[in-house]
Design a protein around this nucleic acid. Sequence first.
DNA 1: CAATTTGTATTATTGAGTTAATACAAGATG
DNA 2: CATCTTGTATTAACTCAATAATACAAATTG
Lengths: 154, 154
Amino acid sequence: MTADAGPVRCADLSFSRALVMQIHISPNDGVPIYLQLVNQIKYQVASGRLAPGEELPAIRVLAEQLLINPNTVARAYRELEVAGLVEKRRTAGTYVSEQGSPLARRERLKILTERVDALVAEAGQMDFALEDVLALVQQRHAALQTARAQAVRE
Amino acid sequence: MTADAGPVRCADLSFSRALVMQIHISPNDGVPIYLQLVNQIKYQVASGRLAPGEELPAIRVLAEQLLINPNTVARAYRELEVAGLVEKRRTAGTYVSEQGSPLARRERLKILTERVDALVAEAGQMDFALEDVLALVQQRHAALQTARAQAVRE
DNA sequence: CAATTTGTATTATTGAGTTAATACAAGATG
DNA sequence: CATCTTGTATTAACTCAATAATACAAATTG
């Protein structure tokens, strides 16, 4: 693959419409590689670093860049598709969805309620009052908004 | 074990100081057995069904009751001990701790902040507003309180 | 002080989840 | 229409967490 015959064709790759993604993988982090991919891409979408309509690198390209198996990238892309964050166009590549999440509100609410239940239960375990939790939610929400704004400005 | 020789000694067991725990295990729930134990015992402590100072069933007793391996119960008890919910007295049994959680507030806050961050990020992904999340937290907190009160009354 | 009851430690087996190797299908493109 | 690039599908190997089998250590108790 490295010792390819013929004239230099690297230029083709550098012209690719899809950006070169800034992703870092920690092979032995405990967290599965495909999940690291999902999380980092999710966060990049959430923070505005990846804009709707933008094309993601082809599965093989990203796999080569990160020195991992294409199947691993494929799995991450599939999960992102199910989550509604990206759309695949058969042979044309993978793109960031225009709308955040296409799931029905009822479904989303159900998922969120599960998360909230777990949080509230755990907070209770740790002897935190409702007010503590509410304050923390507001505080961390603000922090995320700040991070977002900064990312967009860059 | 069932066809034990000698006179009937079952009476000894029925006089045990430790209660007969109401726990239900779903072997193929995806959730590991030891975690099901941890969660259910945690919840019983949180809801007041298990009072501080109360003795838990001996590892072997609970294992036999639930038809699982003693090691699995031992693991659950160990995790509960690390979490500070129970205390072990070498050869005298396992007891519900007097205080809920002995972790320093700083530590607990750190853990809770991680949870909140994840929740806020996910809620944002799902296009929920901060107000939605706050309302849901209050709502589910109230629901948990109700469930608690009911459990104590029983 | 022997017996019983408590939790502990070590090791092996199993099973699910993760990753990789490889071959395939389908649409775009010159 | 041949070729290239895209995502897809199938299968195998590997890793690790969960559970079980078994033997051990320590304290109470009659």
